[in-house]
Amino acid sequence: MKFTIIYAYRNREPNRVELSLLSLKKQKHINFEVVFVDYGSTLEFSENIKKVVEVFEFATYYHIGHNGLLWNKSKALNYGTTKTKTDTIFIADVDVLVAPDFSEVIESLIKPNQFSLFRIGYLPERVTSNVIENSDFDMLKPKHYGDTFGVGLFPKKALEKVGGLDEFFHFYGSEDEDLNFRLVAAGYKMNRCQSNMLLHQWHERYPQKAKENLSAIPRLSNIQRINQRHFLRHKETQKFALDAVQTRKYYSNSDYEILEKPSKIIEIDNIEAEVIHVLNYELPLFKSHIVKVIVKESAFYNSSKYKLKTALNKQTQPYLSMKEVNDLILQKILFDYRNYNYSYKVSKYLNSVEFTIDLRN
């Protein structure tokens, strides 16, 4: 029985993707096809990964979104589901390697009223891409095994019944656990497959504390707990079907080009009152415009005069750090503008941010 494997990807090393696809090519039975969804990679990455994917006859490459959008794995996977022609979907990960009997095991697990999650072995740093490429699967020894929430086998009808993955979830955290809960709530049985047929390629973990600092790659402080709260809300209300699935929109690079011609530009310093007022009052007024909001770090904010006034508790205009500005805008996108065509950028020197949005829809 044929099934479809969906990958969600953005700006990752092409080599690790190639190794994952090569492990699929070694299957005894090619009873699957791959839907590879590149969600908003930069031109450099998208051009390279497209070449890698299209080498494999069983794989089809799709590029959606654009680089100005925040990373949203749920959107990528939901789009992949719309491109799936089979009744069964395996959600993969670009870091995963599969055993030679993977496709046979998957075929044996396909049931209309059940979804399956899998164990995965985590390879140590010393198992490099070169070692992987020149070793049989059984020769690769993981440092430990763990159960996954996000790598799984699903009936397509089950995903459609619950509305797919919730696109509220941005960056990383809880989107897979939320999906699994809603499937069980909808009456599907969860099966834990204990076969050791998946390995995870090593990569550095992003330091948790780094999320508290501004970076050129947009990151939102406390996003994992915000995502978790959204998931827990579904559990509290026993909600399994998502509302307004029909409102989902998938943008492209041509939509990014539209944002390069804003009809309104608002430039402000990182003064707390101005930032809050613009985001919550002024911006919503421009419903027929493409609006660009530029927030720059004020020279006065870093001056000795301001620091002295602050230290002495003297009255002065309150400022936000650029990280605080970043988090306010990202929260605004998350809660109010996640379905709009927008672009968010942090400057190279971390002293300004740009938020452009098409409010005409």
Rank of each mutant, 00 (worst) to 15 (best):
G173F: 14
W202C: 01
F154G: 00
Q194E: 11
D166E: 10
K157H: 12
D176H: 13
L153M: 10
Y188F: 15
L153A: 03
E160I: 05
H203D: 06
V162Q: 02
N180G: 03
G152V: 03
M190A: 09
V184W: 12
E160K: 09
H144E: 08
W202V: 01
K156H: 08
Q208R: 15
E167A: 01
M197H: 11
L159G: 03
E167F: 11
K211N: 05
K156Q: 09
Q201Y: 14
T148E: 13
N196Q: 13
G173Q: 10
Q201R: 11
H203Y: 14
F149S: 05
N180V: 06
P155V: 00
F154M: 03
Q208L: 14
L159Q: 06
L165P: 04
G163I: 10
E177F: 14
K211R: 13
F171L: 08
N180D: 07
H200S: 05
D178P: 07
L198N: 06
K157D: 06
V184K: 15
R182C: 03
H170P: 00
L159T: 02
Y145M: 06
Y172Q: 07
L179N: 04
L165R: 09
H144C: 04
G150E: 06
H144D: 05
Y206C: 00
K189E: 14
T148N: 13
Y145K: 05
D176R: 09
L199I: 09
V151E: 10
T148S: 12
L199C: 08
Y145E: 07
G164W: 10
L199M: 11
P155C: 00
P207Y: 14
L153K: 11
H170Y: 13
E177Y: 15
E175H: 14
H203V: 03
M197K: 08
L179M: 14
Y206E: 04
L183H: 13
V162M: 05
H170A: 01
G152A: 05
R205G: 04
V151C: 03
K211C: 02
G164Q: 06
V184L: 06
R192L: 10
L179Q: 07
S195P: 00
F149C: 02
Y206G: 00
L159P: 09
V162T: 04
E175W: 14
E204G: 00
L165I: 09
L199K: 09
L183V: 05
R182G: 02
G163W: 12
Q194H: 08
C193V: 13
G150H: 11
Q201T: 05
F181W: 12
H200V: 03
Q201D: 09
Y188A: 01
Q201V: 06
L199S: 04
P207I: 13
A210G: 01
C193E: 12
K211P: 00
N196S: 04
R182V: 02
P155S: 00
Y172V: 08
G163S: 07
D178S: 08
K209G: 01
Y145R: 06
F169R: 02
G152H: 11
K157R: 08
D166A: 00
Y145F: 15
N180P: 13
H203C: 01
H200D: 06
A186R: 12
H144V: 04
K189W: 14
T148A: 02
